[in-house]
């Protein structure tokens, strides 16, 4: 039944995760940073599902579902915050909102 090695799932998951992290670091636009975040979240989902496939469990899939739901909430709130920032500051890049700098 297990024709795909679980290590392959983890390799893909890790690749997607670090790509998401890299996107968060290098992206300037706030919306694209949020999209990179979504990518990283999906990478975690891949790892969960792959582990389920390997171990014959369903908990990973259930957590994947929760993550999808939370990602939806996160996207809604995050985009709302970005829109609010844009409305008050007319900026859309991360280096413009540095009010918390030391």
């Amino acid at each position: 039944m297990k024709t795909i090695p679980v290590e392959a799932y983890f390799a893909v998951s890790t690749a997607l995760f670090v790509l998401g992290l890299l996107g968060m670091i290098v992206r300037r636009n706030l919306v694209t940073v949020l999209m990179s975040l979504e990518l990283a979240l999906n990478a975690v989902n891949v790892a969960f599902v792959g582990a389920d496939y390997h171990m014959g469990l369903v908990e990973g899939q259930i957590f994947a579902l929760f993550i999808i739901a939370l990602a939806a909430a996160e996207a809604a709130v995050g985009l709302g915050i970005i829109i609010a920032i844009f409305r008050y500051r007319l900026v859309d890049s991360t280096d413009e909102i540095t009010d918390m700098r030391g």
Binding site: M24, I25, V26, T94, D95, I97, T98, M100, R101, G102
Partner: peptide
């Protein structure tokens, strides 16, 4: 002297996390 570690930039914080 440690101010530079808190530039207020999101990507720097992500970089620090990584």
């Amino acid at each position: 002297n440690l101010r530079f570690a808190q530039p207020g930039k999101l990507n720097w914080y992500a970089f620090g996390m990584v």
